[in-house]
Design a protein around this nucleic acid. Structure first.
Length: 273
DNA sequence: CGGTGGACCTGCTGGC
DNA sequence: TGCCAGCAGGTCCACC
């Protein structure tokens, strides 16, 4: 499900429900996620107080007192919610945290591509999950010059290049597809063939697409739901993703589908060069 | 070294 | 109705 806008939405909605709360108990029902869940490490968080909720790449960082972090990655189908403990536990609700206000934070993930672990804030820069991550696309460090510096000698398809988390984080299949449409660049172009102008347009397209999707609380094409159980709205604004054969909203030509790097890609053969 | 292909999972959809 | 193939928002690792 989740790319940067969905993770950002999840963080923003969790923050007011978690900040100031303490963890009263932890239950792990299924530990076989992307990484095996360390139930003892999670259990040591009992008594910890939530200071805030933030995001790095597609990781949710629940910041706790004492420089501790509860780190959650939603994978493809992960979901965090705060519910009443009397709500019947659903299939695939793998971890539950009792909170001191009587509510419960639950992590649900049918495909189990997500992960949930602990870390120290100070160690994040050297942490194996975080050490090699690229720049945040909404930061000033990310622009056309940055993309070009890394991509100008790469033979990879530009779509695979911008989905590489060591280059820029948070850009998954939907937003890579939409950003390339907005920039007018075909997804299969070799990165090193892009012009300076195209790199500039692509960086700006990534920023504006992600920002617009955050304003719409993310994209729900399959299963994504925010912590209140509500879908996003950006699926109504998609111009290319999932629109095989449908008319391009700009020129009317039929949108095409092509697989690049084992991922479905969609583009307009007229608007994208 | 850069780049690709497969692996990890469950669930849904569409065709027969 | 049942069965099967193909598809799904992510990441990691082995291999060329």
């Amino acid at each position: 499900m989740p790319e940067l806008p969905e993770v950002e939405t999840t963080c923003r909605m969790l923050e007011p429900r978690l900040r100031g709360r303490s963890i009263a108990g932890v239950r792990v029902h299924e530990s076989r996620l992307r990484q095996t869940v360390d139930a003892r490490a999670l259990g040591r968080l009992r008594g910890a107080r939530v200071e805030g909720v933030s995001r790095r790449a597609k990781y949710v960082l629940i910041r706790l007192n004492g420089d501790r972090l509860l780190v959650v990655h939603l994978g493809m189908t992960g979901h965090l919610t705060v519910v009443d403990p009397s709500d019947e536990r659903r299939d695939h609700e793998h971890v539950r945290f009792a909170l001191d206000d009587g509510m419960e934070l639950r992590f649900r993930d049918p495909r189990r591509f997500g992960l949930i672990t602990t870390a120290r804030g100070a160690e994040l820069p050297d942490h194996p999950l975080f050490a090699r991550l690229g720049v945040e696309p909404l930061s000033d460090a990310f622009d056309g010059a940055y993309l070009r510096a890394l991509g100008k000698s790469s033979r990879r398809a530009v779509k695979a290049f911008i989905m590489d988390g060591q280059v820029v984080v948070g850009v998954g299949n939907i937003y890579a597809t939409e950003s390339l449409f907005l920039a007018g660049v075909r997804p299969g172009r070799a990165a090193r063939r892009l012009t300076r102008d195209e790199w500039d347009r692509l960086a700006e397209a990534i920023k504006s697409t992600l920002a617009a999707a955050i304003r719409q609380c993310g994209t729900t094409v399959n299963s994504y739901l925010d912590p209140y159980g509500e879908p996003g709205a950006f699926q109504n604004s998609l111009k290319a993703y999932g629109r095989t054969g449908a008319p391009c909203r700009a020129c009317g030509d039929a949108i095409r589908r092509r697989v690049i790097g084992q991922r479905s890609s969609f583009y307009c053969p007229t608007c994208q060069r």
